Simulated scan of single mutants.
Amino acid sequence: MSPKRSYVSPLREQAAARTREQILQRATELFASRGYGLVTVADIASAAGVSAKTVFASVGSKSDVLDGIVSLGVAASGHEQAVRQVRAQQTPEAVMDVLARGTRAGNEEHFSVHEAIHKALPVHENGEALWQRATADYRDALRTIARHLHTLTPPPSCTEQETADALWFWFGPSGWRALVVENDWPWDRAEEFLRRTAAATLYRRP
């Protein structure tokens, strides 16, 4: 007699996926607004309309929930398409325009995810590794853009590595957060300022 195969209903799988998504969305909102350290699994369960047992069964511990949020953020970053759009530009001015607009759009769209991760870093047991995983693709994308800038005429006035570091300083999540969150700038103003500052600095001649 052959062993019985377990049958998993597609509808049940879809319902489980929706529950997991709901839990992660509500947890993201709570972590972003209150901070990771002040949110409990019970809080997440209440916001998602499920039991704490369901949170553990669907996602795991609070640390697992944060890990899931990071994974979703990385998957939804769209960095490959953004890099293609920037590399299609053939003048430094066009690159700066598309880069500022694209990183603004990504940071604005995924603002709550970035805030949830940022506020978890001081209290999470693996905060540094978490941040590196959350931003690795982002930083690699800016390195690729720096290389592209150095193929154009004129090239930036600094080295390729310095260009990559500067792009991360201006257009990485910390740069946007410093202006929009810490200084309460509108996104439009921040975008124009970062674009203008980057262009003026990278192409300053002695």
Score class of each variant (00 low, 15 high):
residue 77 S to T: 08
residue 23 I to R: 04
residue 117 I to C: 10
residue 80 E to V: 10
residue 76 A to K: 13
residue 118 H to N: 15
residue 38 L to A: 14
residue 118 H to P: 13
residue 87 R to E: 14
residue 109 E to N: 11
residue 111 F to L: 13
residue 57 A to T: 00
residue 92 P to V: 08
residue 59 V to Y: 00
residue 60 G to L: 02
residue 29 E to N: 10
residue 75 A to T: 06
residue 116 A to F: 12
residue 117 I to K: 15
residue 17 A to L: 05
residue 38 L to M: 14
residue 80 E to G: 09
residue 60 G to N: 01
residue 113 V to D: 12
residue 43 D to Q: 08
residue 47 A to T: 03
residue 108 E to S: 07
residue 79 H to K: 10
residue 34 R to W: 15
residue 64 D to V: 00
residue 50 V to D: 02
residue 27 A to Q: 05
residue 114 H to D: 14
residue 55 V to E: 01
residue 75 A to N: 09
residue 112 S to F: 14
residue 76 A to H: 13
residue 112 S to T: 15
residue 87 R to W: 09
residue 95 V to H: 05
residue 72 L to K: 08
residue 33 S to W: 09
residue 35 G to Q: 10
residue 50 V to K: 00
residue 77 S to N: 10
residue 110 H to P: 13
residue 36 Y to D: 12
residue 43 D to F: 07
residue 39 V to S: 10
residue 81 Q to S: 09
residue 84 R to D: 10
residue 75 A to M: 03
residue 98 V to T: 11
residue 115 E to V: 13
residue 114 H to Y: 15
residue 116 A to S: 12
residue 105 A to I: 06
residue 61 S to C: 02
residue 86 V to I: 10
residue 46 S to L: 11
residue 69 I to G: 01
residue 117 I to T: 14
residue 118 H to L: 15
residue 113 V to K: 14
residue 73 G to K: 08
residue 54 T to S: 01
residue 33 S to K: 12
residue 113 V to W: 12
residue 24 L to H: 02
residue 19 T to Y: 02
residue 66 L to V: 01
residue 94 A to D: 11
residue 111 F to V: 11
residue 119 K to L: 15
residue 101 R to M: 09
residue 101 R to H: 11
residue 104 R to F: 04
residue 57 A to I: 00
residue 24 L to T: 02
residue 31 F to T: 05
residue 24 L to A: 02
residue 20 R to T: 01
residue 30 L to C: 05
residue 34 R to T: 10
residue 19 T to S: 07
residue 49 G to R: 01
residue 100 A to V: 04
residue 116 A to D: 09
residue 32 A to Y: 08
residue 54 T to H: 00
residue 29 E to V: 10
residue 47 A to I: 04
residue 31 F to M: 08
residue 50 V to W: 01
residue 41 V to I: 12
residue 77 S to V: 05
residue 74 V to L: 04
residue 22 Q to S: 11
residue 105 A to D: 12
residue 118 H to Q: 15
residue 95 V to G: 03
residue 96 M to L: 10
residue 119 K to W: 15
residue 93 E to A: 13
residue 46 S to W: 12
residue 98 V to D: 09
residue 52 A to C: 03
residue 17 A to Q: 04
residue 38 L to D: 13
residue 38 L to G: 14
residue 37 G to M: 13
residue 44 I to A: 04
residue 39 V to T: 12
residue 107 N to A: 13
residue 22 Q to C: 09
residue 18 R to N: 06
residue 17 A to G: 03
residue 109 E to P: 06
residue 62 K to Y: 00
residue 22 Q to K: 08
residue 101 R to W: 06
residue 105 A to C: 08
residue 83 V to R: 11
residue 25 Q to V: 05
residue 88 A to W: 08
residue 87 R to K: 12
residue 114 H to Q: 13
residue 62 K to H: 00
residue 66 L to E: 01
residue 84 R to L: 12
residue 84 R to S: 08
residue 103 T to F: 08
residue 92 P to W: 03
residue 92 P to T: 04
residue 83 V to C: 06
